[in-house]
Write a protein that binds this DNA or RNA. Sequence first.
DNA 1: TTACATAATGACACAGAGTGTCATAAGCTG
DNA 2: CAGCTTATGACACTCTGTGTCATTATGTAA
Lengths: 208, 208
Amino acid sequence: MTSDDAKPPRPSGRPATIDPDAVAGLALDLFAEHGYENTSMEDIAKAAGIGRKSLYRYFTSKADLVWGGTEPVIEASTRAFDSFHSPGKSDGGVLAGLREATIAGVAVIPDLAVTRGRLRLIAEHPELTSRSYESLAPQREKALAFLVESGLTDSAARFVSAAYLAVTFEAWLQWAAGSEPDPTPYLLAALEVLNVPLNKAGVSQWKH
Amino acid sequence: MTSDDAKPPRPSGRPATIDPDAVAGLALDLFAEHGYENTSMEDIAKAAGIGRKSLYRYFTSKADLVWGGTEPVIEASTRAFDSFHSPGKSDGGVLAGLREATIAGVAVIPDLAVTRGRLRLIAEHPELTSRSYESLAPQREKALAFLVESGLTDSAARFVSAAYLAVTFEAWLQWAAGSEPDPTPYLLAALEVLNVPLNKAGVSQWKH
DNA sequence: TTACATAATGACACAGAGTGTCATAAGCTG
DNA sequence: CAGCTTATGACACTCTGTGTCATTATGTAA
């Protein structure tokens, strides 16, 4: 469901010989071994046996090597958003939609161990952490559209989608920092912030 | 209260001749005139009549020229957080604290027109928008400490502070995109997201 | 005034990211 | 085989960000 269906155009021309996934994996290994900033694009290209320019053709930036692989997740979330059209239940439906889309995204990830490695690398480097805003932009737009579709004001929808993205990203970081196999509990706990009003907060998220 | 009190150390040595604020203002002018990416650090240094290296001594990065001037705001917020120690009202106090800190930050900004210009530049350039995560990191830590102090779990506090930062930043962007003089209404509306549960959302943020 | 300490300044050099151009190689189709 | 399409990489370039180091300007102490 991720990439095996629809190999649409085999028009003509020379087929690619470079496997982006393999290169990204190789880059992650180098990052793990020598550190992110100590590994240049040249090093990665050399290790992959390709030219630096070819590397840039597949990954527009060094950060892209780490932040890649987001598309399938976002696509899955989008499908969940789209199949959530429910004119009847405008009550409670919004948060449920966000929850379903989030879970749907998790289900698509092929190897959570790899994702954890990537997230740990991201967490260690402010440069990469910042990139979340850009890398999650498509997701933010999808959520925004869903929220507007659900009846929220454009302004309110922007606030909620901003909070949604920030909170789920934080959940991913918390999960990556630990050793729990399943990120779902973190994500659901994060979404609770959008549910429970702070001034009537449920007992569960309070210490005392 | 911003920079006129406590000129503490005049130990010795040559005093600075460069005025960082003036340089930043000059840079913003150049960005407005020729575009952000078309203006190199060399151009800015030349226009300011200083060396490129001296420019880097005052601004660690090009983005810093735009994202500067955040310290006073964060300091004001921090003071508001600190003076909010209220052991009695653990109900409704958390959100009120976030509100007060936010407003306190606004009050400190010397020229909102300049801030609007900076934010518009930030909004136009993903590279600069992303920087929010780094630039607002101190603010996030302060909010986190306040929330933990208020009794929230560490995990929950991280979720809430992430949402708080994302939502207020989005408010600033919305304000900057428009022409309203006062950002306060945007900020308060943003904070409502943390107050009103989505499944019982108040009428005000719904279209229909 | 002279000596000294301190700190700002900028000249020079450098690694690395990211981009553009262009010639070449490799596969597919007729 | 001929021709088309596309991948590939060699080369050159700009700009960011950093490090080193000599120089200059200022304030303080003798």
